[in-house]
Design a protein around this nucleic acid. Sequence first.
RNA 1: GGGCGCGUAGCUCAGUGGGAGAGCGCUCGCUUCACACGCGAGAGGUCGCAGGUUCGAAACCCGCCGCGCCCA
Length: 898
Amino acid sequence: MYPGEDTDAPGQPPERRAGEVPERPTLDGLEAKWGAAWERERTYAFDRTAPRERVFSIDTPPPTVSGSLHVGHVFSYTHTDTIARYRRMRGMDVFYPMGWDDNGLPTERRVQNYYGVRCDPQVPFDPGFAAPTEPPEEPLSISRQNFVALCLTLTESDEQAFEDLWRTLGLSVDWGMTYTTIGPESQRISQSSFLGLLRRGVAYQLEAPTLWDVDFQTAVAQAELEDRERPGAMHRVRFGREDGGEALIDTTRPELIGACVALLAHPEDERHAALVGGEAITPLFGTRVPVLTHPLVQSDKGTGLVMVCTFGDLTDVVWWRELGLPVRPLLGADGRLVPVPWGEPGWESRNPDAARAAYSELEGRTVNQARRRIVELLAASGELVGEPQPIQHAVKFFEKGDRPVEIVTSRQWFIRTVEHQDALIARGRELRWDPPYMRARFEDWVHGLTGDWCISRQRFFGVPFPVWYPLDEQGQIRHEDPILAEEAQLPVDPSSDVPPGYEPDQRGTPGGFVADPDVMDTWATSSLTPQIVARAPSAASANRKDHGAARAGGQAVDDGDLFERVFPMDMRPQAHDIIRTWLFTTVLRSHLDYDVLPWREAAISGWVLDPDRKKMSKSKGNVVTPIALLEEHGADAVRYWAAKGRPGADTAFDAKQMKTGRRLAVKLLNASKFAIADLPPDAAAASHPLDRAMLERLAGVVTEATACFEDYDYARALQRSEDFFWWYCDYYLELVKGRRYAADPDISASVGHALRRSLSVLQRLFAPFLPFVCEEVWSWWQEGSVHRAPWPQEAELGGADGAREAAVNGSGTPAQRDLALDVVGDVLREVRKAKSNAKQPMRAPVERVLVRDTQERLDALALGADDLRQAGSIEIVHTEPGDEFGVEVQLADGNPAA
RNA sequence: GGGCGCGUAGCUCAGUGGGAGAGCGCUCGCUUCACACGCGAGAGGUCGCAGGUUCGAAACCCGCCGCGCCCA
């Protein structure tokens, strides 16, 4: 029960009031109580009038809205929040918005499964459409507009659930600044940036070989690929020659023999030198193909001779481009073999009838089906040499896909990246990386770029390209002559909006226009999160780069100079798995549009692994839901576990750490209650040597924790504070109990002073980690929120105060006082051990203690002997100089115990 | 194949040139006037292996083994 809880109306949390310490403090309910208070008092609101030098801006990762947050999110977002809270207490105005990444394939997939629908752009819009209450057996085909509406509905409820979870976790986000990547502002900025790139020739459209997912039937980007080990087979196939000879090649993709356009050998491979320059003839299809050389051919693989197809893998694309080979595409967008005209130009054959007959066995089949069949055909014709050899090999998959990516020629939008490689490496070196070794991943990725970034997707729930195409008099699309939206129009949906200079009824008519049907890759928008949160002004007609860094020449939209106050931002927190996607693309876009880094620092967090050190994933069934965690342990305890995870390091999920965190939070409640309830009178300064020594130790902790935070080492800051706090509770608080309850205010006031100072500092030291319990204990005796209180400083603890030093007599030098804490602690431990060995309670009286130690340590002991006697219930403490530390304890019952 | 990281007590981890540590778990004890969601005490380690540098190595260097990730 909290103060005032029973008198306030239900649902209305009690107003903050200082000075009341509950009889039985508890952690239960603190999340709801203080979550509501922070909202009411706008504790974390960003002050838009703050000058840039006082702003600390954070480019928070917008979590993908496709179901639920998992414990890995809780982990890394907590790291960011500890930094945000630290900076806020340091007096910074923290710009800390939250976003939701809701556009893109994950949402489409979720909507498909949740409602049992599929998007079919051919289906007309149904204004009265309502989603089925139960997903039907067969997916329902619905229009693009209805599909997008369902996506918006579902993401909205998901986003509310996400926000609730983040509030319960205690993220100190300004919830008045939330954005979504499908929202109008994101669309405007995304389209505006795209148009700028297009005008400057940095974005371009090209009909080209493109990585293609045959299930989603969309282009995908290099960054979205992953290798998966899959079983395959190496087939040795005999090609013919005009002179009747043969050429043997090895391939894992015999189904593409019909698409073969050349054979290649390494230029220095003597074995095939005679063949090079001549021609070979494909089996089954009888097509003549040239035999050429290229340095990328690996002579040690198979026969050293490879076939180049349209297109079996990315290397085929390189060869096709560099050797100027023709195309012979066999694969359709759905991953099946398309009909082709054998015998006609481009599909020449020595025997078109045989080619047609063989191909009829393959046409319309999937890649796998065609592969099985062609192996049978090759075996029957004697052109398969030996048996296929089973192998394990890495196959490229779209990271969200179920079948290997294919390479299909199609018209797509690209952003130039390859020519900026050097500049991007240089940007990566300007950036501060935490931990520093993460930069290697960025450089690896940039060095490995093989093509420009394909940003168009043949999907539905995304930001559309703000582009239409004119139709000529025959109704043919003139792709080379796109009509661009005007800045003032943005955001536009070209499928419903009309381009400048046209009428709506000209859509799809000869001489009229059609919309670009594609949407942007989700990263094409996510890469602009700094611009989105900062509400980047439109570029208008001028391009941004012409106006210099971070100073767009265009008109402000509605937030005036917010952009200039927060951009470039201070920190980008994110996990290491999306360095090649989110981090890379954000650096790229900022470089291209503003010629500047988007942020000063990238703080890279690790993953949460299950106790077997495997990545947590739904398919393994080892996912822990954050809500259950928060309910079981409480937000502060979960945050404690997260904050123990060092920057960049993967961390095993460990509920025991949460129990430890809860223990710490409970300890803070009880220690605060002990210290604050019936506080002794205050003094101008601590006069007792042990009080002063404790404060001096704490000053050292403050210095260290501050340095850790400045170095982004929140975990060590917590560790140092915690180490001190447990010592403080176990030794200091026990030692001073006698003086704390002393009737003489001259004695108790020194403790009163020390307790006030230390508790205040400790509550603030823990505030970034345990925001709920710290706010609770702070509210018992202080005005305002602890999260708006100043970060503690050494000077508060009177450490280096020369005047005060002189005013207090008999408390030794700082070194002697600190030693006194050690020696008193050592002796107390021995006394406790004696009682423990004698199976006596700790309060059991001790008749006599003899301490043998060096004179220096005995002198120090004298400074705290009174407190030692009290804490150990010791009658007399004798000392005896010696070389070795030793303690003899005489318990009051007469039995020597040690 | 290249790169990065990791390997310390049963578990999770801290410790970067000079005493091998913490929490949890385990054993024993204590209803001590803030706290039994507690307190006290104790047991437990050849610091992955091998070599080198050094007066001195868990730490620095070299090699190997194992695990994870990124890239090809």
